[in-house]
Amino acid sequence: MATFELELVSPEKLLLSRPVEMVIIPAAEGDMGVLPGHVPMIVTLRGGVISVRENGQETERMFVRGGFAEVGPTRVTVLADTAVPVANLSRAEAERLIETAERDYQAAAANDTPEKREAAMNHLLAMRAMKDAAQAA
């Protein structure tokens, strides 16, 4: 089967760099499947799970809090704000982060600019996606 090069990078390190058959990324507009030969584009990521497929099966699941992906016909580069293997997520930690994010959003909704409110809401949604991913692991 045809492959393309996938690189997943977080601020701390290069997490993944190898040929894969398919990747599903949590684009801001919705989950996006990428196969070899995909049209070039740059997309914003929302909090969610990146799913990697090799040899006809899912081989990796990584939670990302957000970031960007550059998609091309032979390469996909994901620049993630934060990336954690789904198996390493903690539901209890995600619930704690949701509580903090909810407080931050309430404070932003009362006092801040629309941009800061949107950023606070995006963070809250990402933490909820983290909890969902932790439950599914």
Rank of each mutant, 00 (worst) to 15 (best):
F4Y: 04
L6D: 00
L6F: 03
L6Y: 00
E7R: 03
V9A: 05
P11F: 13
P11C: 13
P11G: 06
E12L: 13
L14G: 07
L16P: 04
R18M: 08
E21F: 09
M22E: 12
V23Y: 03
I25V: 15
I25C: 15
P26F: 04
A27L: 05
A28M: 12
E29A: 12
E29D: 14
G30K: 15
M32D: 04
M32Q: 07
V34P: 01
L35T: 15
P36N: 05
P36S: 08
G37M: 13
H38T: 08
V39E: 15
P40E: 07
M41W: 08
M41Y: 09
I42M: 14
V43G: 13
L45F: 06
L45V: 05
R46N: 10
R46K: 14
G48Y: 08
G48L: 04
I50Y: 09
V52G: 02
R53P: 01
N55S: 15
N55V: 02
N55M: 05
T59A: 07
E60D: 14
R65W: 03
R65I: 00
G67A: 14
F68K: 14
A69G: 11
V71N: 01
G72Y: 03
P73A: 14
R75E: 08
V76I: 07
T77W: 09
T77M: 12
V78S: 00
V78H: 01
L79S: 11
L79F: 10
L79A: 08
D81A: 11
D81F: 06
D81C: 05
D81Q: 10
A83S: 05
A83D: 03
A83G: 10
A87F: 06
A87T: 13
L89H: 01
L89C: 09
R91G: 12
E93P: 02
A94E: 04
A94Q: 09
E99S: 15
E99M: 10
E99L: 14
T100M: 13
A101C: 11
A101H: 02
Q106V: 02
A107K: 11
A107Q: 09
A107D: 10
A108I: 00
A109N: 03
A109W: 04
N111F: 07
D112Y: 04
D112F: 04
P114V: 04
P114E: 06
E115Y: 11
K116G: 02
A119N: 05
A119S: 11
A120H: 06
M121P: 07
N122A: 15
H123N: 13
H123Q: 14
